[in-house]
Design a protein around this nucleic acid. Structure first.
Lengths: 331, 331
DNA sequence: TTGTACGCGTTATCAG
DNA sequence: CTGATAACGCGTACAA
C-alpha cells in the first residue's frame, strides 16, 4: 500500500499533479469538465485528502488561530473559547487553545509554543498588562486581546463593561430609594475588573448620597466569614439597604444568609449581583442580576481578529461588550 | 531581510544545515563543543526557531492532539479539556480543540477537519455510540473516548461512575432510615448517564424497601414547574423523605423551595444531589453532595492516550473515575 | 487546457 | 565529527 499523495491521485486519474492541485484549490476556470469529473471520481474512490502540513509549508496559511486563555477550568474562559470557536468555524479556521492556568510563566511558555505554529492569528486573555512576548507576537501576527486591557493602545481588544454595568444597577438601586448599599466582593485590589465594578456602583451611591460600604471577603468556606456576613445582614435588615455581590457564589451565599436571618427580599433588604451560572431566574424571588455576555466577547474578538487577518479593518480599537441587566424582583 | 531558516543559521554559524539540525534535535553525542557553542550563540543572536510545519512534514510528528468536546460552553466539557491540557503540556503536546456544540453533524465535520492535521492522537466526547468517522479515525490514529461509552469495546474510554455514585448516596440515605426518596431530574430517557443515576439510587431504595419516586422536570423557569415542586415538597415534609437532584441547578432550586416551604433540613426533609459548581459547602446547612471529578476524566483520558501513542499500553480498557461524595449535614 | 520542474524548511542517509 | 543531498507532500511559475 503506497501512501496517498497528490502524485498517486494524479497517476490514478491519468493527469498531472498540477491538475489535481488546481482541482483541490477550486481553480476550475480552465479545466475541461471531463478531467474535472475524472479527478472528482478518483479522489472519492481513493478517499484522498490533502496533507495540511505540506499545504501550510507551501502557502504559509495554516488555517490555525491560537487562543491563550487565563484559566480553562473557569466558566469565563471556556465561554470565551466557545464564542470564538463558533466564528472561527464559520470562517473555516481551527482554534489551537492553550491554558495559562492563571500562571504568568505558563502563559509565556504557551505563547512561545504558539509562535512556531504558523498561526494566522492570535487571541490572548492576558495575565499581565504587557510583556516582551506580547510585543513580539503582536508585531508578527494579527493579535487581539480579550477580557483584560493592556498598556499598548495599538492592540485591539474586547472587554466587558464592568463600570457601566454596576453603574446601571446603582441607578436602579437609587431609583428605588435605598439608603445603603453593601457591596460584597472578593479582594478588590488584585483585579482591575473588580475595582471597576466597585467604582461603578460607588459612583452612583456618592452621586445620590447613598451610604456605600465595601465588604471584602476571602475564605468563603470559613465559618467566621459566614458569621461576619450574617451579622452584617442582621444589622442591615430594615434599614433600606441593598446588597450587591461581585460574583455568583457570593450572590448565592448572601441569598442563603438573608433567608436564614428571616429577612424578606426586597422588602427588608435588597439583593443583586453578578450571575455567572444562569440560575437567578429560578429563585424566589427571582433575582435582579448582571449577566456578562462572555460569549459575545469571544465572538467579537474572533470577528475583529478575522478582520485584521483579511485587512478589512486595521484600526486599533477597543470594543466594549455590554452586560445584560436582568431586572427581576429582588431590588 | 532574508527569512530565518535553518540554512540561514547554518551560513551565519559557518557550518552546514545538517549540523544545525543535529543541534536542534539534541544530537550532541558527536559534536565538538566548539561548534555546539557556536551554534548556540548564533541561534540566540538570530532568535531562530524552527518551522513546525516543515518538521512535521518530514517526521510525521505534529505534537498535536485533537480533542472534540460535546459542548464547550458546558462546565463539564471545559473541565475535561482543562485536565487533558495539563497532562498534554507535561508531555509537550498541544491540544487542538473542536466543539461539537451538541450537534452530531458538527461533530462529524470537526472530526473530518482533524483528520487532515497529522494528529498524533485524538480524544472524543462522542455524541453517538458509533459512527463511520469514529471507526475511520480510531483505526488510523490512537483514540480515546471520554464521558460517554461507545458500542465498540475495543476503544479505550474514560467515564464517570454514575450508577455507583448515586448508589452510595442511596446507602447513606438508607442508613439514616429515610422512608421515601424523591429523585428530581431532567428528562431521563435521553441520556444514559441520567438513567444510570436513577438506577443507582433506585436499586438501593428497592433493596431497602424505601419508597422511590422519580420526578422529571423540564422547563425550569416555568411557574408551573416550580409550583409542582413546591407541592411535592409540602406533601413530603415530615414523612422521612430525602430529595435527590441529578444536577446543580435543580439542587439549588430544591434548596430554595424547601426553605420557602419552611421545612428544616435534614429534620423535616433530606436534601442531596449533584454539585457541578462547588457551592454546596457554603449553604446552611452545608449540603451532602456528589462532586464529579471531571478534571480527572480529562487527565486520565490524556494519560491513556499518551500510553497508546507510545505503545506503553495498547489493551482496550474502560477506566471509571469515581465521584467524590461530600458528606455534610443535609441527609 | 495541461504538464514540468522547482522550492517551501526540515530531517535523514550516506560519505568523508 | 561534519557536510552533501535526497526526500516529505504540495503549489505555482513557466512552458507546451
Amino acid at each position: 500500500m503506497t501512501k496517498l499523495t497528490i502524485g498517486e491521485v494524479a497517476k490514478q486519474a491519468g493527469v498531472s499533479k498540477s491538475t489535481i492541485s488546481r482541482y483541490l484549490n477550486g481553480n476550475f476556470k480552465k479545466m475541461s469538465p471531463v478531467t474535472r469529473q475524472k479527478i472528482e471520481k478518483t479522489i472519492k474512490e481513493l478517499d484522498y485528502h490533502p496533507n495540511r502540513q505540506a499545504q501550510t509549508l507551501k502557502t504559509k496559511k495554516s488555517g490555525l488561530i491560537g487562543f491563550v486563555v487565563a484559566d480553562m477550568a473557569n466558566m469565563y474562559s471556556s465561554r470565551l473559547i466557545s464564542g470564538a470557536s463558533k466564528v472561527a468555524r464559520e470562517h473555516n479556521y481551527q482554534v489551537l487553545t492553550m491554558d495559562s492556568v492563571n500562571d504568568i510563566e505558563l502563559e509565556h511558555d504557551s505563547l512561545l509554543k504558539l509562535r512556531d505554529q504558523a498561526l494566522e492569528g492570535l487571541i490572548i486573555q492576558p495575565m499581565s498588562r504587557n510583556s516582551q512576548v506580547y510585543e513580539e507576537l503582536a508585531s508578527t501576527i494579527p493579535t487581539v486581546f480579550v477580557d483584560r486591557v493592556t498598556d499598548n493602545k495599538q492592540w485591539p481588544g474586547v472587554v466587558v463593561d464592568n463600570f457601566d454595568a454596576t453603574h446601571q444597577i446603582g441607578e436602579l438601586i437609587a431609583s428605588h430609594h435605598y439608603k445603603n448599599v453593601i457591596m460584597v466582593s472578593e479582594p478588590v485590589s488584585v483585579s482591575q475588573a473588580r475595582l471597576n465594578r466597585v467604582n461603578g456602583l460607588k459612583a452612583v451611591a456618592d452621586a445620590n448620597s447613598i451610604n456605600f460600604e465595601l465588604v471584602e471577603v476571602d475564605e468563603l468556606q470559613h465559618e467566621s466569614t459566614r458569621g461576619q456576613l450574617v451579622n452584617k445582614i442582621k444589622k442591615a435588615t430594615g434599614t433600606r439597604a441593598a446588597v450587591f455581590t461581585s460574583n455568583s457564589r457570593l450572590l448565592m451565599l448572601m441569598l442563603q444568609i438573608i433567608e436564614e436571618v428571616g429577612a424578606e427580599i426586597p422588602t427588608d433588604i435588597g439583593l443583586s449581583g453578578y450571575d455567572d451560572w444562569n440560575w437567578t431566574s429560578l429563585t424566589n424571588p427571582p433575582l435582579t442580576s448582571i449577566e456578562q455576555d462572555t460569549l459575545s466577547v469571544g465572538t467579537e474578538a474572533m470577528k475583529t481578529l478575522i478582520d485584521r487577518i483579511s485587512h478589512t479593518n486595521d484600526e486599533p480599537n477597543l470594543k466594549v461588550i455590554r452586560s445584560q441587566i436582568n431586572i427581576r424582583k429582588s431590588i
